[in-house]
Every structure is written in C-alpha cells, then in structure tokens.
C-alpha cells in the first residue's frame, strides 16, 4: 500500500515511481531528486477483500454518502493547496485530437517568460505528451491511467508532490482525451477548459452536454482550417451557451497563433484572481 495516502495497486502509472508489494501488486516509485519533471507513478484500484466470517441478522445501514466522496476529499485538499499557494490550476478536457498538447506547448512558449508553468499529462499509455511539453520548456509529469478513462484527484495529488509547484505558478492538467468521464471527476482545479476543434462537429456541445456544462471556458481551436471545413461557429457557440449560459468562448488557432492573445488574457485574469491575497512572505 502506498504510504502517501494508502492507495492500493492498479493500472495507473506515474512516471518515476515504482514499488513492489507482498500481495503481488507493484507500482513504481523511483525518487530521483535531481531530475524533477521526469517521474512516473503506478497506481491501482485493488479491493481490500474483507471477508469477515459469522452470521448476523439482516439490517439496514443508512449511508447517504456521495459515491465520489473519496475523490472529492482529495480534490478539496488539492484545491486548498492551490489556494494557499496562489496557484492557477486549469483542467484541460477535450476529445482526442482536438489539439490540446499543441495548444499547451504554444501556451508555454508564449507565457513562460512571465509565469512558472508546470504540466500534468494524462494519457492511457506512453509518455509522449510529457516529452513534447518538456521540449517546450515546462516541467511535466506523465500519468498513465492504464485502463482508466479519466484522471482522478488522487493521481493528481501524487503528481503535484513530484512537481513541487512554486507559489504563484500555473499548473495545467491535460486530461485524458475523453468528453464524458472527466466531467464528473473534480481534480481541485480552478476551472475546466474544454477544447473543441473545428474539424469536429459543431453539435458536440449538445452531444456531450455534461462536459460543456462543467467547463468555464470553451476554446474553439484550429480556426485556420475554417475555410476548408463545414463548421458553423455561430451554431456551435449557441449550443454551448444553451448548455451553459455562462461559458466564455475563445476562438484561436494554436498553429498560426491567431486569437492566442485572448486566451493569454483569460489566463492572466485567472492568475490574478488565484494570487489575490497571497502574501509575499512564506
């Protein structure tokens, strides 16, 4: 069992962490303090097989507890950490192929002279995305969820411990490419940013309403391709606002740089809010 939080074994891996357990499960924990940003963790979700013999009479037990309460506790702890340290944490969600990683690496290039940026990369397998992010100049940790379809707050807490985030910095979490499950899992982020590219359908907000409902900002990416595709921007924005009347929308192309300034402006505004009340000391 993991000593940080008592987590069990499973399919998830975070770069750089591995240990072996008596029960035949393993996760990795390599602690290399000279190479921050090059870690991976291995998680699991094993059951605690509690077999208690003996019979008693059937009775009712009132639980009234949220199924995601464990996740929400970790998320609250993460959020509190971000708040205390003035860290802006954004959870980037989209379907696969919307250009999240390109947007992120361009954002890092565009903003890292003013901000310290760290990235948590979530993918089912491989550390390819974390490698790409590191090349653009930010520290990154890759989480591989194995069979999982989303990141949870507990995986993020481990990755945060590796990243040793600076006060007043920015943390981007690139969630697993999936417009369904990540909507339900609070990671402790300040806001969810949903990225939709114009090569997808304009009706995605209606098809995946939960995600667009949960997001504070929608980025319409790859606008440089608009002349070549049949994508109704106005309809898409209308659908998104039908699901979430308060959602902000930024249109940009991470490849050409068009519209990126609006995105930076939004981030800077969020950063200011995150850093409000943060004292210089400590």
């Amino acid at each position: 069992m993991c000593t940080v939080c008592g987590c069990g074994e499973g399919e998830t891996t975070i770069e750089g962490h591995e240990h072996q357990h008596d029960d035949g499960h393993s996760h990795s924990h390599v602690h290399d303090h000279h190479e921050h940003g090059d870690h991976s963790h291995d998680y699991g979700q094993g059951a605690a097989h509690a077999h208690a013999p003996g019979l008693s009479q059937s009775r009712m037990v009132q639980i009234e507890q949220d199924i995601l309460s464990k996740n929400n506790q970790y998320a609250d702890a993460n959020r509190r950490y971000f708040s205390e340290h003035g860290i802006l944490c954004l959870n980037l969600v989209s379907s696969p192929g919307s250009g999240k990683t390109t947007l992120l690496s361009e954002t890092i290039k565009g903003m890292s002279d003013q901000h310290s940026v760290a990235v948590i990369e979530g993918d089912q397998q491989t550390a390819l995305d974390a490698d790409r992010i590191r090349k653009s100049g930010a520290r990154a940790v890759q989480i591989n969820t194995g069979k999982g379809c989303h990141l949870d707050a507990h995986m993020v807490a481990h990755a945060m411990a590796d990243l040793q985030l600076l006060r007043g910095s920015m943390l981007f979490i690139e969630n697993v490419g999936n417009l369904v499950c990540p909507a339900a899992f609070d990671l402790g982020e300040v806001a969810k940013v949903v990225i939709l590219s114009v090569t997808e359908g304009a009706d995605k907000p209606l098809k995946y309403p939960d995600m667009f409902h949960a997001a504070s900002l929608m980025i319409l990416n790859k606008t440089d391709l608009l002349p070549y595709v049949d994508f109704d921007v106005a309809a898409c924005c209308d659908y998104a606002r039908r699901i979430n009347p308060g959602i902000k929308i930024v249109q940009l192309s991470a490849t050409t740089g068009e519209g990126m300034q609006q995105w930076y402006d939004w981030i800077n505004a969020q950063c200011k809010i995150a850093q409000t009340g943060l004292s210089e000391a400590g």
Binding site: I63, E64, Q65, D66, I67
Partner: peptide
C-alpha cells in the same frame, strides 16, 4: 447530479 449511496441492507 447526485451519485449517492443511500442505504445498505447488511448482515
């Protein structure tokens, strides 16, 4: 948006 375990019948 509730996902709650309401009660259990146990032995």
């Amino acid at each position: 948006e509730e996902m709650r375990i309401k009660q259990l019948e146990v032995e």
